[in-house]
Amino acid sequence: MKKLTIQLETLTCPSCMQKIENATKALQGVQKDSVKVLFNSSKVKLDFDDSAIAAEAIEQAITTLGYEVKKSQVK
């Protein structure tokens, strides 16, 4: 289990948190309870199984929604 922290562009719209949450939770290998979308710091924090999904794939899912990924860190 790895920890992924993604810094996004400034989040402004109220429903974007819900979108990002749903999109990441739907991915295989992402720990559902661990997904946290932080509105003010514009970050996504989640735990994922790196044998089931790559960090890049998770980032891709968020980019597809239309949110630019600025920086990410896997620990």
């Binding site: 719209c13 429903s15 819900q18 979108k19 999109a23 929604l65 239309g66």
Partner: peptide
């Protein structure tokens, strides 16, 4: 509309 489509794909009825 693009944002709306992406929202619906992840089952969110957003403002978009």
């Amino acid at each position: 509309a693009i944002q709306a489509y992406q929202a619906l794909r992840v089952k969110v009825v957003s403002i978009d």
